[in-house]
Amino acid sequence: MSGSHDHEHGHEDHHDHEHGSELSEMQLRVRALETILTEKGYVDPAALDSIIETYETKIGPHIGAQVVARAWVDADFKTALIADASKAIARLGLQQKVGDHLIAVENTPATHNMIVCTLCSCYPWDLLGLPPAWYKSTPYRARTVKEPRKVLADFGVTLPDETKVRVWDSTAETRFIVLPMRPAATEGWSEEKLASLVTRDSMIGTGFPKAANEVAA
């Protein structure tokens, strides 16, 4: 086993098989702490349910995709987004409020941007939801700053030799999102249709948007 599976679901399953207990041990320990904190009046279980539901159903990469699509069709918005992403996005009036210190970095034929957090797993939750397991995994955190092209190869991504790679290590409370390049042959497309091309990975820098012919006409 390797990578994300080792560190997320696979890991817990793995231990469960090996030691017969981690999965149930974690269930029991989390339940015990929740019970105690609730009995003491610190925690309202309705708040827990609401927070979980928000991250499972409301906050996700569709928010970032809307922002990217707008930047592709509206040059003034793109300029504002690059200058101050939090402020520019706040003016869009999205349903879910985004936090401060957001920074959008633009991919060009000359530069490809990648986002990582080597020290923990900082990630632009407000725009992309909770991070995928691989983003939090030891290999991604360890290798991206040293061998970004080899990490991209793990995603099946190859860049032209002349494209420089820029890695952003999220070591403070600034949060980064990649503005990928608009795919060819999408002239005249609606924002909504353009947003359907924007993949989560393209906003982290480990992938590209879908090509025009990958979505239904």
């Binding site: 390797s2 990578g3 994300s4 599976h5 080792d6 997320e8 990582v116 080597t118 020290l119 923990c120 995928p132 397991a133 691989w134 995994s137 030891t138 290999p139 991604y140 955190r141 360890a142 290798r143 991206t144 700053v145 040293k146 990490v151 793990d154 995603f155 290590d169 990975d201």
Partner: peptide
């Protein structure tokens, strides 16, 4: 936790 640049953890496995 300060693992930037460490080797030996294998490939990144997309989920």
């Amino acid at each position: 936790h300060d693992m930037g640049g460490m080797d030996g953890f294998g490939k990144v496995a997309p989920d």
